[in-house]
Design a protein around this nucleic acid. Structure first.
Length: 768
RNA sequence: GAGUCUAUAGCUCAGUUGGUUAGAGCGCUUCGUUGACAUCGAAGAGGUCAGAGGUUCGAGUCCUCUUAGACUCACCA
């Protein structure tokens, strides 16, 4: 044995595990029946973005590996199912940044071409991501790996959409949406970051009424003034009209109870197309909708000519200048308030009315709330149960459509000839962008030319559609049927991940795979709590909706990785520690151990190079302790070639301790305790405590006390040394699999350990 | 605006259902070893467990309030 542990052997060890089949559980012939008897243990990996290079967040999958290795050693059929996510908007955003470097944009390509380009881009990275997870020793069943854009996965997702549609849970509507003009797509509420912005409150004179607003530029789209009916100042004006400045248009004054008399002037300008509150008021009072900013973020034909074609910021300046010049700006106050920003690119969100696809969520949320309340779905730590229920109870309908190409297209087809008001954006055969209504393009371009060059379309709400691709329109028999260009919110697909990957068949559940029967519901879902709503909540709803059962029995949530100062790792802060660099430098085991050592459940993971180095020393300590035990035994063996070398028969049974010294009894008793506490800590997700106790036991009890003591003694220590060492290797294996397996392999032949891999050996059991 | 979490040694953090002298890693002091160990071992210094009050035979651990941070959610102008 070398003087120090050499972590460069890790790859070889991993291959041994892989080849042994240890990662791949066998599903019994009759899975539904066997499930009760065998007690399978299963975890679905929170699918990493396939284009994402490894970072510390991925290294936290160590938690799952610990659980999986532990349960595998308990003898349970254990599945850890890996996967990769196409990650819709995330990936398209990254890809568009690359395009920008080449001086190109998404508008230079038709959607098919763009899709293929992104596909190729992701394929390259996908393999790298898998390689990196292997490097960290994750004992995933690669034979069951799935990628989110596999045909079978996508088919299942489309089938779910159809089922939702037929159950009356899918609808189209033109409401205010969170629209990012840079990304060119709408987002769900969850994808909006609210940031405090220092701005102003502009007081603008609208004839007899002065309004206070944070967005003067949207005044061009005002269609009413709202005041509180109890407000004496304006009471008499309700029902009358006033003239909208700059636009010179008559708009009504309406009474609205929700208006705060105390705030500003007590009068609010109402812009139904660019404010969620105003939208609601407009619906209630039947006001006109005037959308002044379009999907490209610029002002459109609905504003006076001089303001057309500008971004909101520019329009704001022009409007403020003009109002000031006209003497209509009463005053400007400093004011800070919350403004929604795109979580992806950071651009301010423009609330805009746009036709989108929605899922009626209340019927899905109800059973998901029940499951949490009844304990069918458990949370660790338990406090997240409340967070989850509160969110679920206040949930709003889910906008599932995204105006991007990277993802499965919504399976809905429109007949162009029945719906000439569909707006089409496409590249003609000369690669020129055409953007017009079908009624204007139908005589100039063939359907093929439109469809081949298609970038996007906008079908007004109410447009007839089918969720099957028919050859002819059932009404007019036209063959010009065009598919919706909106794609699904990524979470619509990943929300069905446990079902899709285990082979659940939405269209015909009776045809689901044995894997589904055996492993569903999975045992634990372990993930960062920041995707509790995005992902965990959606999976629960889909799982219950489609199968009647939760997708996992327990949600284990943990926090983020921070540096030694407790700051979140980010590129901009420059405090990122690359896990792969650390594995190169200190070995994978050291990194893994440092991630869990001394970390309280659900708190931040504090990682520093110092900590990793300390754990590297521990790994080396194990190596050397083993080396020393081997040497000690060899030495005794040389003196006495007939020496019988064996472990204790029944290591922890007290009856066998007759004739042993106090030191022997002490260490065995402590071993006994550590077996009990490690088991208990693993069962209750106290990984930090478990690893810390093992560290203390191995180093400061076994090495410092027992081995030191054994130096002065003879052959009678051999059974104890071997027993404690072997049990320690097993207990430590889930945390630091490589060194323990390596040592085990070195020792097993020499000391008649069973010829097996440590990964497949059995968990030490306390027999007291 | 609603909610959640955190506050323990110089630094980063453990301390699972309340129970004997409050722990680890790194750092610091002294000594030993360098023939298992990237050194390692032995001994030690260092904490009124944010503050105040309460429950209890007993509280770092439970309750209330205060202070200071962090985070999440949220259509108010």
């Amino acid at each position: 044995m070398d003087k120090a542990y050499n972590s460069s052997q890790e790859g070889h060890i991993y291959d041994q595990w892989l080849e042994s089949g240890a990662f791949t559980p066998v599903v019994p012939k009759n899975p539904k029946v066997a499930k009760i008897k065998d007690k399978p243990f299963s975890i679905i990996l929170p699918l990493p973005n396939a284009n994402d290079p490894m970072h510390m967040g991925h290294a936290l999958f160590t938690i799952q590996d610990i659980l999986v290795r532990y349960h595998r050693m308990l003898g349970q059929p254990t599945l850890w199912l890996p996967g990769g996510d196409h990650a819709g908007i995330e990936t398209q955003f990254v890809f568009e940044k690359r395009l920008a470097k080449e001086g190109k944009s998404r508008f230079d390509f038709d959607r098919q071409t763009l899709y293929q380009m992104i596909w190729d881009f992701v394929e390259d990275n996908r393999k790298l991501n898998q390689f990196q997870m292997k490097k960290l020793g994750f004992s995933m069943d690669w034979t069951r790996y799935h990628y989110s854009l596999e045909p079978a996965i996508v088919d299942n997702v489309l089938a779910t959409f159809k089922k939702l549609y037929h159950d009356g849970l899918v609808y189209r509507d033109e409401k205010i949406v969170n629209y990012c003009t840079r990304c060119g797509t709408a987002f769900s509420n969850l994808e909006v970051d609210h940031k405090t912005v220092d701005s102003h409150l502009w007081y603008i004179k609208y004839g007899p009424i002065t309004v206070a607003t944070t967005r003067p530029e949207t005044m061009l789209g005002d269609t009413a003034i709202a005041v509180n009916p109890k407000d004496k100042r304006y009471k008499d004006l309700i029902g009358k009209t006033i003239t909208l400045p700059l636009v010179n248009k008559e708009i009504p004054v309406i009474g609205e109870d929700s208006i705060d008399i105390e705030f500003g002037t007590g009068a609010v300008k109402v812009t139904p197309s660019h404010s969620p509150e105003d939208y609601d008021m407009a619906k209630k009072h039947n006001l006109e909708f005037v959308r002044i900013f379009d999907y490209d973020g610029k002002s459109n034909n609905n504003v006076p000519e001089k303001y057309r074609g500008f971004f909101p910021k520019q329009v704001r300046q022009m409007v403020v200048d003009d109002l000031t010049a006209a003497g209509l700006m009463e005053k400007i106050e400093n004011y800070s308030h919350e403004v929604g920003h795109c979580y992806r690119c950071g651009n301010p969100i423009e609330p805009i009315t746009a036709p989108q696809w929605y899922v009626k969520i209340a019927p899905l949320a109800k059973p998901a709330i029940e499951a949490a309340k009844t304990g069918q779905l458990k949370f660790f730590p338990n406090r997240f149960k409340k967070t989850y229920i509160t969110w679920m109870e206040n949930i709003r309908d889910w906008n599932i459509s995204r105006q991007i190409v990277w993802g499965p297209r919504i399976p809905a087809w429109y007949c162009l000839d029945c719906n000439p008001d569909i707006k089409l954006n496409f590249l003609d055969k000369n690669k020129n962008i055409v953007s017009d209504f079908y009624r204007n393009t139908k005589n100039k371009y063939s359907f093929e030319e439109i469809n081949n060059g298609l970038q996007s379309l906008v079908a007004p709400v109410g447009t007839d559609f089918t969720v099957e691709h028919l050859d002819n329109c059932s009404k007019c028999n036209s063959v010009n049927l065009i598919q919706e260009t909106d794609t699904f919110d990524t979470w619509f697909l990943s929300g069905q991940w446990p079902l899709s990957t285990l082979g659940f068949n939405t269209a015909d559940p009776s045809k689901s795979s044995p894997d589904f029967d055996y492993f569903y519901p999975t045992t634990i879902m372990d993930t960062l709590w920041d995707i509790l709503f995005f992902w965990v909540a959606r999976m629960t709803m889909f799982g219950l909706y489609l199968t009647g059962d939760v997708p996992f029995k327990t949600v284990h949530l943990h926090s983020k990785v921070t540096d030694a100062k407790g700051q979140k790792m980010s590129k901009s802060k420059g405090n990122v520690i690359n896990p792969l660099d650390m594995t190169e430098k200190y070995g994978t085991d050291a990194l893994r151990m440092s991630l869990v050592y001394g970390i309280a459940p659900a708190s931040d993971f504090v990682v520093s190079e110092d900590k990793i180095r300390a754990q590297r020393n521990f790994v080396n300590k194990i190596w050397n302790a083993s080396r020393f035990v081997e040497m000690l035994i060899d030495r005794l063996h040389e003196k006495n070639p007939d020496l019988k070398i064996s472990e204790l028969k029944s290591p922890l049974s007290k009856g066998d301790l007759e004739g042993f010294s106090q030191a022997d009894k002490d260490i065995l008793e402590k071993l006994n305790k550590i077996i009990i506490s490690t088991t208990k800590n693993l069962e209750s997700y106290h990984f930090g405590q478990a690893s810390e106790n093992l560290y203390q036991f191995f180093w400061h009890e076994f090495c410092d006390v027992y081995i030191e003591n054994a130096k002065d003694r003879g052959e009678e220590t051999i059974p104890i040394l071997l027993t404690v060492l072997k049990a320690s290797l097993k207990l430590l294996h889930p945390f630091i699999p490589f060194v323990t397996e390596t040592v085990y392999q070195n020792l097993k032949e020499k000391f008649n350990f069973k010829k097996e891999l440590l990964i497949s050996s059995s968990w030490p059991i306390n027999e007291n």
